[in-house]
Design a protein around this nucleic acid. Sequence first.
DNA 1: AAATAAAAGTGTACCGGTTCCACTTATTTT
DNA 2: AAAATAAGTGGAACCGGTACACTTTTATTT
Lengths: 342, 342
Amino acid sequence: MQKQPTIRDVAQAAGVSVAVVSRVLNPGSGPVAAATRSRVNDVMKNLGYHPRTAARELKYGPPTTLGLLLADVSNPFFARLADQVVQEAHSRGIQVLLMTTQEDDQLESERLGTLIERRVSGIIATPTGNNVAIWKQLQDLGTDVVFVDRSIPSLPEVDVVSIDNFESARSATALLAAHGHRRIGIISGPASSTTGRDRIAGYRQAMEAAGLEQDELLIRHAAFRGPAGGDAASALLSIEDPPTALVVANTAQVTEVLRRLSHAGIDIPGTLSVIVFDDSPWTELMTPALTIVRQPIDLLARHSVQLALANTQGKSSGKPTVIRVAAELVERSSVARLQFSK
Amino acid sequence: MQKQPTIRDVAQAAGVSVAVVSRVLNPGSGPVAAATRSRVNDVMKNLGYHPRTAARELKYGPPTTLGLLLADVSNPFFARLADQVVQEAHSRGIQVLLMTTQEDDQLESERLGTLIERRVSGIIATPTGNNVAIWKQLQDLGTDVVFVDRSIPSLPEVDVVSIDNFESARSATALLAAHGHRRIGIISGPASSTTGRDRIAGYRQAMEAAGLEQDELLIRHAAFRGPAGGDAASALLSIEDPPTALVVANTAQVTEVLRRLSHAGIDIPGTLSVIVFDDSPWTELMTPALTIVRQPIDLLARHSVQLALANTQGKSSGKPTVIRVAAELVERSSVARLQFSK
DNA sequence: AAATAAAAGTGTACCGGTTCCACTTATTTT
DNA sequence: AAAATAAGTGGAACCGGTACACTTTTATTT
């Protein structure tokens, strides 16, 4: 392990002052003779010099790091989001500190503490819904906070990027209704989440528009984690007059719900038609290929990163920005046309 | 946006020196009277003070950040790895800087540059295979480098954590042979990768042990990214005497290969038996449920993090550590028993 | 050729913590 | 009661860059 050269070592070796080396390091910060510049560059290469980000950050807490706080990354939806966010950030020279909450507000609060100490310029997060005080503090500190996929109603001043949950659920439900389904179930996120509520609202509107009876038994909320999703699916199937179609609108639990359906030996779409909120590659590989609501993850990522860096670039507009991108209903083979039997 | 209080603000407000505040901040670094401690703590809370990591890092480049450099995170295997690494790191109070290379060595080199400037204490990476000089430099600088899943033969002094690729491929192939298959194909990673080579070697050994003819046409290498995986699958199926069984041993391209098989209308396991290296949840949901080689991602993550922090903790043992964890062959329904027809 | 302007380069305070060392004030030891 | 030891606190240098104010060199103008 060699001792790390500093800017002063470089300056001395090149026979110039540290100020000049700093200028070479930051083009545009001041004039440097071409000959000097190349000499300094040579010395830096020979010495294996690399400026330390920590030292640079000390002067002005710079917009070079961004926090990405997700529920977990094993979920394909979040994984793809993380992938896109990282790519988008990298393309702007920004680094990403990845953290997970496991939907645990205690863990979330710890992570937020770390992000504060690191003075990240922005945070992109899927909030658990608690820790409102800390989120507020973060904003007061000048950190750009962006909620993605979900939001917290009691924090209306935070930027939000998500799909149009209402419209997505509405159109998915409408599609099922148009195929003759009258008993349509929906499994959505917790009622405390905006995501969950909006999707249910869209579902209701579609049911009403189709003139279908709204049975509260057909509406299920499931927590983002744990067995709740599977339980909801099982419960839905065991009611007296079970649904012939199901919208799985809890993005985080799609796999869990499908596993339960599969184990129950449900024939899709024979017994049950299904539309899910998840556009993972494998939804196409299943038998039958699943009809899905495709979330434009790249757009979610791009807008999130943009907003998370907005204030930094002086583009802060007093009001919080809410971006709703359109989701796409991709029809495949998991929805059956129901014959009129009654 | 409020101005951020510094340690001096706290000191002044509490009527003590900065040294005392620092001691309160770092318990064990020196004596502080209980009364003073609580007074300082109160002031910190009132002022909303949070120490800046950047300033702290300046003194001693500390082991508080770890770089995770993956090919991409949209791939479920890497996503789950990232998830576990982050959890493991968090449990040790370490933060994770996530980066992706897209398997592009140019991008990789840029990312490595950033990691050097940040003086991360350790790096966990799936290397592209190039940039050997930079990896060496990283190590000289005292950074703990750990390759996970793959390695680079020309860098034997780097720690490696992976599954036992040879044995995994051998046992998967042996299972197929035991089911009466004689024409067994394999799609593995590029020949330049250790992963790819080891798996092929395991395959060869199993073929030989079973007394089966080794046809080079049955062995395909596919790059980790791009359409190569799918092309390899198509090519395999169109040879004169096509395989009746296939080992998809290119973890990164499993989905791509399966998609191609699905589109080609191949009946699994009727026409083709399949074993894949991927234990994503959805492999169980497919029809038929896929027989898989399950990689213990949690173990890979745990060992990686441990090694990446080893030197920091003074546990550096001159020699590089190579950890091979056992993978598990999970039999499900995608392998058919072949009747002897010849 | 003198005057003026622009370019190149230097010295040093500063960012916000940490830590060594010196110093003062209790507490023990003999 | 004097000396030795420990506890509590403060002063200031330091980490490695950045940037401002200023001096020196070179180029341009008339």
